[in-house]
């Protein structure tokens, strides 16, 4: 039961969201380390030492030959045993954006109870043919057993990709995944009510930014421990990263407040010493971003189960 779970954040070969992913796991209460893929391959770092594995976003190998494919192959051929053992030990794995593409091409997602490293789905070019950076709205399947998304209903997050359209060879695979709660989050029309946005029918661009089948944004494996998504929850770690932070009524920040100080009581240097702990806490929560919850969930899970 680690109080501070250790998080391995992969990097190298064009992964480029490793710093922020590591930082956000730390803000969520973990102890993260950026680990070069080759350090796992040559054995200088042992994956078993870690409680959580993150494959961050980026452009591994420039997306040449298809996003995530070459890094997926390196992992499939060079890290197979380590990954197998990590999964079998019941440890959470997340793949974000390019990391999601890597996990799909490695065969860990949608995956089987018994990892077999066979690719069964893919992520391909957006219908627009364009790489785009924009914010989207996601709704989460409340019946999913995904440990990463517990308690999350809706979230606004950025997408930044050119190959995010989720496809499978046969539609019945999606029916099965839906039934088991593996279709964890979908792009939704932001004007729908929270919890009522999910639909199998295609919703228009830009609500669904890539033409993903059934508007799928993220999926998990049957155990709910391996989670991959195209949007960037770490990109919504702080309130000030939200494009509407000046419009959505967040409290005025007090001069010395830090939204990520873990112990509110220590905030005695505040310019407003009379402010109650409660109001300071409210302000802190308002300036923490919605995306934090995903990382906190995994840290919490690791604390309780590993």
């Amino acid at each position: 039961m680690p109080h501070t779970p250790k998080v391995a954040v992969l990097f190298g070969f064009g992964i480029n969201c490793d710093h922020e992913t590591a930082a956000v796991f730390n803000l969520a209460g973990g102890a993260s380390e950026r680990i070069h893929v080759n350090s796992l391959v040559d054995g200088s770092v042992d994956l078993e030492e870690y409680h959580i594995l993150a494959v961050p976003g980026g452009f591994s190998f420039g997306d040449h030959l298809g996003s995530g494919r070459l890094l997926g192959n390196r992992m499939r051929f060079n890290l197979r045993e380590q990954l197998y053992n990590f999964v079998k030990a019941g440890k959470p794995i997340i793949g974000i954006c390019n990391g999601f593409q890597v996990l799909v091409k490695t065969g860990l997602l949608p995956g089987r109870e018994e990892p077999d490293f066979i690719q069964r789905a893919s992520l391909t070019l957006n219908n627009t043919g364009r790489y785009e950076d924009r914010w989207v709205t996601l709704d989460f399947d409340q019946n999913s057993n995904c440990i990463w998304t517990k308690g999350i209903t809706r979230m606004e997050v950025p997408v930044r990709h050119g190959e995010g359209k989720f496809v499978v060879p046969e539609m019945k695979i999606l029916d099965e995944m839906d039934a088991t709660g593996q279709l964890v989050c979908r792009y939704v029309d932001p004007s729908t009510k929270t919890g009522e946005g999910i639909t199998d029918e295609p919703i228009p661009f830009p609500f669904c930014p890539n033409g993903s089948i059934r508007n799928i944004a993220g999926i998990c494996d049957p155990t709910g421990l391996i989670f991959g998504l195209m949007p960037h929850p770490e990109g919504a770690y702080a309130g000030w990263l939200h494009p509407h932070f000046r419009r959505d009524g967040r409290p005025t920040p007090s001069p010395t407040s830090s939204p990520f100080s873990h112990i509110i009581e220590d905030d005695t240097t505040s310019a407003e010493p009379n402010r109650s702990a409660r109001s300071r806490e409210a302000e802190r929560d308002a300036w923490q971003g919605e995306g934090m919850q995903i990382f906190k969930n995994a840290i919490e899970y690791a604390r309780e189960n590993l």
Binding site: C17, E20, L241
Partner: peptide
């Protein structure tokens, strides 16, 4: 929009 303007999660005003 085709440029990633918020990778590394630092861009407050986009």
């Amino acid at each position: 929009r085709q440029y990633d303007h918020e990778v590394i999660c630092q861009t407050a005003i986009k």
